[in-house]
């Protein structure tokens, strides 16, 4: 767990320090990529709670989703249609769903633990 957090910190630090500037036209791409990454992360957490977590699916899903989102945005840009909105909508929708499920699972777990605690002395 600490390794993951360390890497997260390293990633953020690198991003802040790199002073890597992207042309304004591509800011759409990066935002959609972030959305995709976020969605995949939450999906992974949800899968973990549901005990169906598969690391291969997680990793491929992470990169594939990002790539697909970027590709969709690219196509939309070429056609003059704001296709990235579709990606935003889909990812956003799933984001909320995942969060809701994660919340429910956490709540369930907490309740079970409480129940177990109260049952023990009896």
């Amino acid at each position: 767990m600490w390794l993951s957090l360390l890497f997260l910190a390293i990633g953020i630090g690198l991003g802040l320090l790199s002073n890597f500037s992207i042309p304004a036209i591509y800011s759409n791409y990066i935002s959609i990529a972030i959305l995709a990454a976020f969605d995949t992360l939450l999906g992974g957490i949800r899968a973990h709670f549901e005990h169906v977590f598969n690391q291969h699916i997680f990793v491929t899903g992470f990169f594939f989703n990002i790539t697909l989102a970027i590709f969709l945005t690219f196509i939309g840009e070429q056609l003059g249609v704001d296709l990235y909105l579709a990606a935003v909508f889909a990812f956003g929708w799933r984001l909320f769903q995942n969060i809701a499920i994660i919340r429910r699972r956490l709540f369930d777990r907490w309740e079970q633990r409480k129940l177990a605690k109260t049952n023990k002395p009896v």
Partner: peptide, 15 residues
Amino acid sequence: VLFVFGYLIAVSYEQ
């Protein structure tokens, strides 16, 4: 994954 995610977020924030 988290590394990539963090990097993306940081770059986007800068941007």
